[in-house]
């Protein structure tokens, strides 16, 4: 009986230790900066397997995968943090219509480390966004085609998008941020896709 009691306490202690979160300010931080593929509006529409407008329904726990071959478990910079999100789809502009999709975004927070991925918008629960996605190697979760393929929608249904991310524009032009209705931009995409498929 005594042995069982000790065992229960040991298990309970181990569980509590694994569950206790280090205060955020005491966590170490791994910063990550990258080089992303450049796509014109037309190329992005072609490369994306799925273009949707949706809302983040839930955010799963962050997990780590090796960022290089033969990583050293003691080196946090040898790993990348990924977080899976469930997104309720409200509008499908390209691809097979689905009620919900799973989307993997880079970055997140583990028990002892914050992984900051600076150039990409990190979606949170309840946020709405327009997304250019590709299957990658997985049919279970989707990933974004480039860092400007995540376009958050504000409370008023507006998005901020580069003036170069429209049909007929290229990166060589000076770009400014343009604010417009997400529905209007979705219409630009749909119109382009309809024209492109007719050609």
């Amino acid at each position: 009986m005594k042995k069982k009691l000790v065992l229960v306490f040991v298990i309970l202690f181990a569980f509590l230790c694994s569950a206790c979160e280090i205060p955020r300010e005491e966590k170490s931080t791994v910063y990550s900066y990258g080089l992303w593929p450049y796509y014109t509006f037309e190329e992005a529409c072609e490369v994306a397997d799925l273009i949707i407008v949706g809302t983040v329904k839930s955010v799963d726990k962050t997990y780590l995968v090796p960022a290089i071959q033969n990583p050293n478990p003691k080196s946090p910079s040898h790993y990348m943090a990924l977080t899976d999100l469930t997104i309720s789809v409200e509008k499908t502009l390209k691809g097979v219509e689905q009620k919900e999709i799973r989307y993997t975004q880079e970055g997140g927070e583990t028990r002892d480390t914050i992984y900051v991925c600076d150039e990409i918008y990190e979606l949170k629960e309840g946020e709405r966004a327009l997304l250019f996605l590709s299957e990658g190697d997985s049919i279970i979760t989707w990933s974004v085609i480039t860092n400007y393929g995540v376009i958050p929608v504000d409370q008023n249904g507006k998005i901020t998008v580069s003036s170069t991310f429209f049909p007929g524009k290229s990166e060589d032009a000076r770009s400014v941020q343009t604010q417009m209705d997400v529905d209007a931009y979705a219409e630009v995409i749909s119109t382009y896709l309809a024209t492109a498929s007719a050609e």
Binding site: V30, T104, I120, S134, G136, S143
Partner: peptide, 15 residues
């Protein structure tokens, strides 16, 4: 590396 997300290259730092 094999990236699940789409950057073609990445630098990670320990600070």
């Amino acid at each position: 590396a094999y990236f699940k997300s789409s950057p073609i290259a990445r630098t990670r730092f320990n600070i």
